[in-house]
Design a protein around this nucleic acid. Sequence first.
DNA 1: CCCAATAACGACGTTACATCA
DNA 2: AATGATGTAACGTCGTTATTG
Length: 248
Amino acid sequence: MVIVYYVNIFIFCGVCEGSSEGGSSGNVRVARGFDVNRMVAAEEATSSFCMDLAKYRGGNKRSLEDGRNDGVEGERGSNSRASDDDENGLARKKLRLSKEQSAFLEESFKEHNTLNPKQKHGLAKQLNLRPRQVEVWFQNRRARTKLKQTEVDCEYLKKCCETLTEENRKLHKELQELRALKSSTPFYMQSPATTLTMCPSCERVATATPPSTTAAKTAGTTSTSTPSPFPLSRSKFFPFSHTPTKAS
DNA sequence: CCCAATAACGACGTTACATCA
DNA sequence: AATGATGTAACGTCGTTATTG
């Protein structure tokens, strides 16, 4: 029942497309204001039939999607399409991709997150979408991936920051204890000044001592027990790569 | 080889709409 | 039923790259 209605709409669209504009180049505005909206408005559940239907429609495959801009070399023209809609007074409407369509696109995104024209057209044909829709979907999908990665990175940096803050707090405390110890011990028992080093960050005398000395060990500040953040390489704190390589 | 014009494409930001709580 | 939040399809713009004359 539903399917029949859907098919009828498709046929109607095809006729409309062919008669009104009479060509593949000029029919964009008619078709775009049309396709999904009518379908969705007519009955929203039909979109999930899109793909399955395409299998069965056989010879009458040329939907309103096909033959708009695809198949033509310069199918870029997203801007002109938009303006065409506007000129026509038809506000853009949103298609909700069916689960099957989304899953299919998702699968192919896993394989390659960019598309060459052939892949784009192939996908569009398989999913009964316009190549432009496939292109847009991949653009948005890449954006989502990046956003998610950014969130993950942000979370990781936050954790790093917390760790460093805690480390810093411990070191300060340690320094205070050492200072207290130093002032409380007699002068002749104090370590030689050469065993004290300067912290490059806070520019204070820290407790870092040469490995051979025992001063740090007595204070419990071996480099293995409480590693200082200073000598850590950047790669340890930023193991992820932020530089997306542009696929050529 | 160099250069300007052009097309194609991706990233990014934004808008508009659908859906859900 | 109304509404704000959220997700996402679609769009506009800009920068980059390849091609062509």
